[in-house]
Write a protein that binds this DNA or RNA. Structure first.
Length: 287
DNA sequence: CCGTTAACCTGAGAGC
DNA sequence: TGCTCTCAGGTTAACG
């Protein structure tokens, strides 16, 4: 579920709570996430300080005081929660997707600190936790990843070089983490709307002006989403506080058959499937 | 090499 | 109330 902005929000709230804290105990109730959790996982974390909490693309990276790393990916449905050991058992969502209390099912991992624990919940189990023994193996893991859409490395020159002669459509291109990292289905739709590009357009047909727009609007959309706390599209409970607000900014995503919001455009938003992913766009103004 | 499809999972919602 | 069907913010092995 989470794309770069949501993972950034989770990373910030996780960092605020666990940086320089010592892990007392790790309890795993289901090791079968996307990848089986390694046998060494508990012992690698136990007794260590968390020296830093960082993010690359849709991944969270914990640096441990034994110079090892814990990589976290939330998949489609992973969320992190904080439960205090005080009398009230104070519960805090660290994720963009909110619930009132700790979910009853699918709490696979508990990482215990002295005054609270972090709980990883993931119904679909597409997320994973993975230990890396050193910086090199971690770096190698990301060796084929494209630059983050928000970074300076994702610029006109780079994008032009990747689009050239490519038969693939532009939407699948934006979703391909090997070309550009951090964009998922919601933001790919939104970015293409801002660029006025039809998602089915072949990469090789994208012109200079559109390439410039793609770079600019990718950064604009993702940064705005971060500023608004990410998107919480199925947060019906409307918990006060930290719930994401970018869903209110959607121009095309989930707006099938509604009017295009572009000034003077009489178009309606179409929904089609591209590679099994729902795709929303204005048939008139996205060319 | 390239591009597309199926598969991994559970749960919510729609339609009947 | 309950059944069946479709869909969901991600990734990647396998295929043509």
């Amino acid at each position: 579920m989470p794309e770069l902005p949501e993972v950034e929000i989770v990373k910030r709230s996780l960092k605020n709570n666990v940086k320089y804290k010592k892990i007392k105990k790790v309890i795993i109730s289901n090791r079968n996430l996307r990848f089986k959790i390694q046998k060494k996982f508990e012992n690698t974390l136990k007794g260590r300080l968390i020296l830093s909490v960082e993010r690359f693309s849709k991944y969270i990276i914990l640096t441990l005081s034994n110079n090892k790393y814990c990589l976290i990916h939330l998949g489609m449905s992973g969320t992190l929660h904080l439960v205090r050991y005080d009398k009230k058992g104070t519960f805090t969502n660290l994720s963009f997707y909110h619930s009132k209390t700790l979910p009853k099912k699918h709490n696979h991992i508990k990482i215990k600190f002295s005054k609270f624990m972090i709980v990883y919940n993931d119904p679909r189990r597409f997320g994973f936790f993975k230990i890396f023994n050193n910086q090199k193996t971690l770096k190698d893991y990301f060796s084929r990843s494209g630059p983050e859409a928000t970074s300076n490395k994702f610029n006109y020159k780079y994008l032009k070089s990747k689009l050239i002669n490519k038969e693939k459509n532009i939407k699948n291109f934006l979703l391909d983490q090997n070309y550009v990292s951090g964009i998922g289905n919601i933001y790919a739709n939104e970015i293409l709307f801002y660029c006025k590009i039809n998602p089915q357009k072949k990469c090789k047909k994208i012109n200079k002006n559109q390439t410039i727009k793609l770079v600019k609007n990718s950064k604009f959309v993702l940064n705005l989403a971060i500023k608004l706390g990410g998107s919480s599209i199925r947060d019906f409970k409307n918990i006060s506080g930290k719930s994401g607000l970018f869903q209110n900014e959607f121009k095309v995503y989930g707006r099938e058959n509604k009017n295009c919001i572009t000034e003077n455009c009489k178009g309606k938003i179409s929904k089609i499937f591209i590679s099994n992913r729902s795709t929303f766009f204005c048939n008139l103004c996205q060319k």
